[in-house]
Every structure is written in C-alpha cells, then in structure tokens.
Design a protein around this nucleic acid. Structure first.
Lengths: 133, 133, 133, 133
DNA sequence: GTGGTCTAGACCACC
DNA sequence: GTGGTCTAGACCACA
C-alpha cells in the first residue's frame, strides 16, 4: 500500500479507498484484522493520527469495526458483493474520466480509441494474493 | 462552465483546467479575451480571488497574458495543436482511471467492458460552439 | 457554552450535543453562522482541532454545512421540529436515568417522588434568548 | 449484570457502579464473596484486567476487601443504609438528566410530563433476588 | 501491545 | 479572516 502526498486527495481519504478496495476485492474478509494504526502509519510514513482518522471514518461507514485495545477489523456485515462494489466504486471514477473527455468534444469512437490505446499500454494488475503493501 | 465545490480538487485548479480545455479545443483562440475576473466569479458563484489565482497561474504557464486595466487574453503563442493537446491532457486522466481499475485486479477485458458500458450511457458532447459556461 | 474536561464524554462530543441543542431549541436557525472554530476554541479553552472535529462530525450528520474560507452554518435542511427533536434527544437521557433507578429495585412511585424532589430543587432554565455562551 | 461497550463510560467504571448498587441494595451483604475476577470477566465478555481494575478501585474506596488467594469480599464496614445510599448515588444521576432537560429550556412542568411518560413505559424492576447477572 | 483523545503548532486553500 | 489537513507527541483506557 502506498500513499501519494502530492495529490489533492487527502491522505486519510486515500487510505480509506485503499482499505475499501482490499475489502471489495476480497483480499480482506469480514472479521479479518486490519493492520494496526501504528504499523500502517509506519509503513506509509504517515502520522498515526492520519491513519486513525481513516479507520474512524471507515467505522462510521460501517465497513470496519474497532475495539479499544484490541484493534480494528473488517466489519462482519461488510458486503462481499464484489462485483457490485467494484462497479459502485469504479463507475464514478470512469464517468469522471469520460466527462473530461467529453468536454473536449470528442465523439464516442474517439474516446473509445484513446482509452483502448492507454489501456493496452497499462501494466496488468499488481499481485493477486495475500501481500497488500 | 461549472465548478464542483465538493471535489478535493481546488476550485482555482478546476478553472485552470477548464480554460486550458477551451483553448485546446479552439473555443478560445489566441488573442481572444477571457471573461473578466468579476464576471467569471459571478458566473461560478465563486470568490473573485479564486478566479484571479487561476488567471495568475495560467499567465505563469504562458497560456494567458494579462494587460493591466484591459483584461486577460489568450496568449499569442498559445498552441492550437489540438490533437496533441488533447492527448497530453487527457492521457493522464485516462491513465488515472485505468490505474484505479487495475487496483481492483480487473483484467484488460473487464475494464474495457466496464468502460464501454459507462461510455455509452454518457451524454454526447455538451455544446459545440461559442458558449463556454 | 461550557465544557466539562473531567467527564468521560469527549469534549468534541459535548460540543456536538451543545450545538444540536442550540439548533433544536431554535437558538440557532437554519443558515445561521456558527461561531468560528478558532473563536469557539478560545471561548472553551480548548484546542481548535477539537472544535473542528465536532463541526466536521456535525457536518457528516447533516446538521451543519461548512464552506471553506467562509465558515460553518446551520444546515438549510436542519429540521426545526423542536418538539420531536427534544424528545428524540432527551428520551434516551431520561431512560438512562430511569434504568439506573430501576436497578435499585425502586418502584415507579418511588422513582417519581425522588425525581420530583430533585427537579424542584433544580434551577430554572438558563437564559432564553440570543446569548448562548 | 451487563456492560455497555459503546458507552463513553469506561467498562471498569460501569462494573464499579454495578457492584456498588448490589451492595447498596443489599443484594450483596458484608462478607459476601464477589464473583471471581475470571468468572465475572467471562460473564461480561471482558478482559480480566478490566475487572481487576474495578475490584482494585473498589478496594481503595473501602467497599471491597481482597484477600490474596481467597478472593474478594464485600467489606465488613460496608454501610447498609440503603435509603441514604440510593439517594446519594441516584441523586446525581437524576440531577444530570434534569440538567440536560433544563438546557433545552424546558419548564418544570414539561420535564415532569416527559419524565412521567418515559417512566411508565419503562419495565418494572429487573430481578428482585439473589441473581445478579 | 491496542485504539482514543487532546494539544500545539505548521502549512495550505479559499474568502 | 475562514476551515482543512497533517505532524509530533502526550496521556489515558483497555487487552
């Protein structure tokens, strides 16, 4: 897992999204422990408070449940409806990109072509399995 | 032209991108006048300082030149190499979306399908001509 | 407005409740400005971050809406259904006290009597009007 | 006996209060044995350290005395002045609730009515006798 | 060891 | 001036 400190997107938000992704892709399953706040903070070279905020907000969203003194865990009621989750999350991301393209007055074909070109240049998925750093 | 106040992307940055787009697509041509800071601020329901900052940074980028008391204009040396500009600008945007999709361990096919689906749902290009609001 | 630093209830939570109360009682009305984070922090002798957290969570709850650089405001969609709000908020508080009393095996009458006794000793409402410190 | 892990009131504090209540209501009498730390911890699904802390502080308060290797007992000098104890303990609880209600600018009558309503909805005393879980 | 709260203080975006 | 984010570091509650 990594974090982009130059992005406009706040770090805590990046962390939230990353955790969501790990859950949505099934890398983290309900009741799995999340890395401890301090550990993740150390790994990301980020202040523990920043990680704590991400975890806290994930808890408010119901994705994570946390027990004082024990740690944070993927919520039992976390939906493993991966297909749907991915689309719910990714949809807006793609729509955003499409909207940007539309603003250049590009036609559907042109956008398609451009996208395909970049897509095939892009690297295949990272690692599939247990490691998620 | 519109601005998304809920986005993490700063408003002045959104304005910069929009102006850039208008120039790259030829809606605004070299020596054309930009809307006045006050007008644009009023239109976007945004503080004039915010527009001023966008214009100032565009000037530093050489895309716009400001003449005291007369207003701001598209720079004479603004490149109308639309093809290239579009790709230079849009490329990273698409790459970003693709990278997000890759993080869900989606294969090239799956991303393509998903993108196509959203693309065909999206509205055709907005306005073609002179209005740029 | 005041804050009890010895309470188990976190300061940010006390602030949230206090603001809620001010809205529920109509002291603060939709679109009214809240005190600035720095001002309230100074008044309560508390760190601005603590007030900021209260405001942020109130915003997540939809009670407050905040505009960068402008300040925080009572949300336009804040419900002025005072009667109901008071009961929704106060109900659990009273129930809690009742539950405590029940744990002493006190009968309904005994609790009533005891409550009445304390109630009549308690000071009438603070100030009614615009001052809310 | 039960414990609310979502409350801001620390668990050890909830346990202390519960024990106090059992003594004050005469359910536990001087020289009675308290449940063992392990048993109570198991019953409450709580860490033994937490129960231990409650017992330790109760001992400091003189309500409980612990004999190494034998267990904890209600102190011989524990006062069975139930009437008074109840009021001493319950008074502040009720006052707290009343203060909360006062903050909503409710009059004495309104508070009384509201309290009566909730009181009559509340279940009669739990168990009367020896069981104290 | 864990997470939770709070402080002090910096820097930035925006009005 | 406003709020937002982040850091560094303290102290506490809990396992």
């Amino acid at each position: 897992m990594r974090v982009d400190t130059t992005s406009f997107v706040p770090i805590y938000e990046q962390i939230k999204k990353e955790i969501f992704r790990l859950v949505a892709t099934g890398v983290l399953k309900p009741h799995d422990a999340l890395p401890s706040i301090r550990d993740l903070a150390a790994e990301l070279l980020v202040n523990p408070n920043t990680v704590a905020r991400a975890y806290r907000e994930l808890e408010q969203d119901g994705l994570v449940s946390t027990q004082k003194g024990r740690g944070s865990f993927v919520s039992g009621r976390a939906q493993p409806d991966i297909e749907k989750d991915v689309e719910v999350y990714l949809g807006p991301v793609l729509d955003e990109a499409i909207a940007e393209a539309r603003k250049f007055n590009l036609g559907t074909e042109a956008i398609m072509t451009l996208f395909e070109k970049r897509l095939h240049k892009s690297p295949e998925a990272g690692r599939k399995g247990g490691r998620h750093e």
